[in-house]
Design a protein around this nucleic acid. Structure first.
Lengths: 189, 189
DNA sequence: CGCGACGTTGATTTGCCTCAACGATTGTGG
DNA sequence: CCACAATCGTTGAGGCAAATCAACGTCGCG
């Protein structure tokens, strides 16, 4: 069932029952176990993923060999490698389940078909991408203005419940810090 | 004249002459002198800006008081504070001309009108935002994987002509480094 | 039970910043 | 058209935030 996705779309535009059916026909619904991958470095990423339940992480491997998480996918967020998706280039990223997940998968060709059958879907995705880009701009402010300690505290204050759900070392990776350093921040609070 | 903008749109979708006229009626064309501002911190940003000629920089003031450039606007790019634009919140940013510029201005309400009159424009902006977001993801890879020296060299190799056009200290600001450090990198090359 | 994954703690190192002083270049008013 | 002030880049000394490296504690799970 893709009810959460339909509900999300209807925050941006109304859908008839027929349209809901069409969407349902073009979206595949899957369940992921912890540590399952949706794609890996070198793959062509030809779909977008809507998280209905659980948590994904998108990361790449730095030159140093260390994993760098660039984004978490949580409830009601779309996540994908948009460079690979848009330009048909091999992805630099891995997209992996952090925990048990329910995901709606929208393949690129199915999306194109949706745009033809339901023009309103262009409006929906235009709005979604606009917000995603806005969020990326805001993130840049926090990442370039805050010290390591401040980034940690800002994130922990902004998403107190989420911080509980993921291992410390993933948070460190997302914030661009080492697990050791996070540990020291927590020690002398 | 907004010919460069119309040409850009037609890379993504075709336009009839009527449609071109409608667009022309909803876009304002302006010239900026060096150091002119399009908006400043605290302002509501209610427009998007398409650079037809020249170069803009978007920056904010860090807690330390130092300017941090988050983006350059160059030929054929849209630039704006999408958080302020989307959520009607005061902007954190300044948008300023680095040099003499020709800019096409699309106000938010005019954009909404365009979407009603020319639904294809949703497709155009959907595509533009998707690419902008893709670019933001890619930038994140470079910024979190490279050392200061590597960031400088990567940028200088990727945009050799652009590096010539802007003062060194703006490049430093964009890369999150100090002008002194850039200077030292260049010294021992 | 024992192993591997995760977190902690301390010692040491380092990449880049800060501060300060000094050239070079630009531009502007008298 | 020159003088002088900004503006921009350079160089060096010293400092600091966070990384690295290594060792150890602890928990959960097969």
């Amino acid at each position: 069932m893709i009810a959460p996705l339909l509900a999300h779309i209807q925050k941006y535009t109304s859908l008839t029952l027929d349209e809901q059916t069409i969407i349902e026909q073009n979206v595949k619904c899957i369940t992921l176990a912890k540590k399952d991958y949706l794609f890996s470095e070198g793959d062509l990423c030809n779909a977008q993923y809507f998280v209905m339940e659980g948590c994904l992480r998108m990361f790449f491997i730095k030159n140093s060999g260390v994993e760098q998480i660039v984004q978490f996918g949580i409830d009601n967020w779309w996540i994908s490698d948009y460079t690979s998706l848009t330009l048909n280039t091999p992805s630099l990223f891995y997209l992996q389940a952090v925990q048990l997940c329910k995901i709606a998968v929208l393949k690129k060709d199915k999306q194109d078909e949706l745009f033809l059958q339901i023009p309103k879907m262009e409006h929906y995705f235009r709005s979604i991408y606009q917000r995603a880009y806005a969020a990326a701009q805001t993130r840049q402010v926090y990442f370039s203005d805050l010290s390591g300690r401040e980034k940690y505290e800002h994130f922990a204050n902004s998403f107190p419940d989420f911080v509980q759900r993921i291992p410390q070392y993933m948070l460190a990776s997302y914030l661009g810090l080492t697990p050791e350093f996070i540990s020291k921040i927590r020690a002398k609070k």
